[in-house]
C-alpha cells in the first residue's frame, strides 16, 4: 500500500534505535527547534573542528519520520567538511520538495533516500526536515 512508501523499513529501524541520540556533554553550540503545528521538538548539539563537523548529538520527541530523519542526518553529516555537509543537506531538501518525482541520489544521501516517499505527503515534509534545519541553524551560527 501507499503507506509503505512512507514508512520504509530503514525509517522504522532508525526510529526504533536512533543514532547519536542523547546530548553530548560538550558542544560549540546548542539549538532547539520545534514544529508548532504538531509539537515535535529537537535539541541539537554541534561540535566543529575547523570546517569539519566533528560531532552531532541530539535529543527530541516526535514522530517516526522526524526522529528517524534526525538519526540519518547525524550519521550522514558527522565527519564531513562543512561544504560537503551543506551539499548533502541541499540534496535532502531537494528530495523533500520533489513531490514524489525523485528517488534521491543514494551516493550522496545513503539511508536518506528512504525518505523519498515523504515528499508525497505534504504534511510530513516538515517532520523530515526538523533535524536538518536544526543542523543548518547550528552550523550557520558557528561558521561565519
Amino acid at each position: 500500500m501507499e503507506l509503505d512508501s512512507l514508512y520504509q523499513e530503514v525509517i522504522l529501524d532508525h526510529y526504533r534505535s536512533p543514532h547519536h541520540k542523547g546530548l553530548s556533554a560538550q558542544k560549540d553550540i546548542q539549538v532547539h527547534h520545534n514544529n508548532p503545528s504538531c509539537g515535535d521538538e529537537i535539541t541539537l548539539n554541534l561540535i566543529m573542528d575547523g570546517r569539519f563537523v566533528k560531532d552531532i548529538s541530539w535529543d527530541g520527541v516526535g514522530c517516526s519520520i522526524s526522529m528517524a530523519s534526525a538519526s540519518v542526518m547525524s550519521d550522514l553529516l558527522i565527519g564531513k567538511r562543512y561544504e560537503e555537509a551543506t551539499k548533502i543537506l541541499g540534496a535532502f531538501v531537494e528530495l523533500m520538495q520533489s513531490k514524489g518525482q525523485s528517488q534521491g541520489d543514494e551516493v550522496i544521501l545513503e539511508d536518506g533516500v528512504a525518505f523519498a516517499g515523504v515528499s508525497k505527503f505534504p504534511a510530513r515534509i516538515k517532520c523530515a526536515l526538523l533535524g536538518w534545519m536544526a543542523f543548518k541553524d547550528a552550523t550557520t551560527q558557528v561558521i561565519k
Binding site: 500500500m1 501507499e2 503507506l3 512512507l6 514508512y7 504538531c38 515535535d40 516526535g62 514522530c63 517516526s64 519520520i65 505527503f121 510530513r124 517532520c127
Partner: peptide, 13 residues
C-alpha cells in the same frame, strides 16, 4: 510506542 502523527497517518491510508 507509536507517535500520534504516525497513528493518524496509518488511519488516513
Amino acid at each position: 510506542g507509536v507517535h500520534p502523527h504516525d497513528v493518524g497517518q496509518y488511519l488516513d491510508q
